[in-house]
């Protein structure tokens, strides 16, 4: 799999832009007076934000109408969901284990070790599970979609699809975005469960606790207001990962370098977006008084 990951400065990550040829320059429009005043990086950032918005708009325009590419959606769901499970599972397991082991001494100082399952459970369900899984998926899925679509673009497969009468946006982009949007939440649920098992083992390492008691304590301290907002935001994580991967790949520059760059920047932007969405989600849940 193509996945270059250079350590570029952050601002370069954000403003990384592929300068694919504008298809229709149409009539020459007079440049607005403020355009040269904007710093280059900021202009590129705005340009990209605008293009991504248009990409998302196009997705919502196309997603409702047939033909639905079910076969492709299933194929992508398999690739994105099932194939990511081992990676997600391992990461979640380790995170659950480590989080519990790390929290123990602090709680032990207060003699509150009995709170360990409740505390770790809430951390995992509310925040750690969704974000870690989304980040892992941004890395794995974002780069693979970015690279795959990038190489499809470069080798004219997207044009070939267009010529053969299949709407490539619908076949390639819509199916992938739908798959990530619905597979990431499932991966998060599974990741949460596996992380809790990891956490249970960590609790068990230092003290006797039954599996039932552990999960009872976890669920006793968990409320719908912990679970539901955290679950809803995973759909947005999945959507963002899909959109960014597809956008970066679909607008890939020509040549192998373009493919690498698409993969790279889709990982970076998708990871960043995961955090931004997380921040916004916290604000929104707070606004609705769920915290």
């Amino acid at each position: 799999m193509l996945m270059t990951y250079n350590a570029l400065p952050l601002f370069k990550f954000i403003f990384m832009e592929n300068k694919s040829a504008p298809t229709v320059p149409a009539k020459k429009r007079k440049e607005p007076f403020w355009l040269p005043l904007l710093p280059d990086g900021f202009r590129d950032f705005l340009t990209e934000a605008g293009e991504i918005s248009r990409f998302v708009t196009r997705f919502f325009k196309e997603v409702w109408f047939p033909p639905y590419e079910f076969k492709e959606i299933f194929r992508q769901s398999y690739e994105i969901g099932y194939r990511s499970l081992p990676l997600v599972g391992l990461t979640a397991f380790i995170i659950g284990l480590v989080l519990t082991l790390q929290s123990r001494p602090t709680l032990a100082r207060f003699g509150a070790e009995s709170w360990l399952p409740a505390m770790v459970g809430i951390s995992i369900i509310r925040e750690i599970g969704p974000v870690i899984v989304a980040l892992v998926c941004a890395g794995k899925i974002g780069s693979s979609i970015g690279a795959e679509l990038g190489s499809m673009k470069v080798t004219e497969q997207i044009d070939a699809m267009e010529v053969s009468g299949t709407n490539p946006f619908r076949y390639i982009v819509v199916s992938r975005i739908l798959s990530t949007t619905f597979m990431i939440p499932i991966l998060v649920i599974m990741g949460d469960a596996i992380a809790l098992v990891g956490s249970y083992l960590a609790v068990k390492l230092t003290g006797a606790i039954s599996l039932t008691l552990f999960f009872q304590e976890v669920f006793e301290s968990t409320d719908f207001s912990d679970f539901v907002p955290a679950f809803i935001k995973t759909f947005f994580f999945g959507f963002a990962i899909g959109v960014i991967g597809c956008y970066k790949g679909y607008n890939s520059k020509k040549g192998t370098e373009g493919v690498g760059e698409s993969a790279n920047s889709s990982v970076v932007v998708a990871s960043l977006l995961v955090f931004v969405i997380d921040l916004v989600a916290v604000q929104i849940t707070q606004f609705f008084g769920y915290l």
């Binding site: 795959e148 190489s151 004219e156």
Partner: peptide
């Protein structure tokens, strides 16, 4: 019918 320079076979 369109034959592309790079053949453009669908890799997957």
């Amino acid at each position: 019918g369109f034959v592309f320079q790079s053949s453009a076979l669908y890799d997957s």
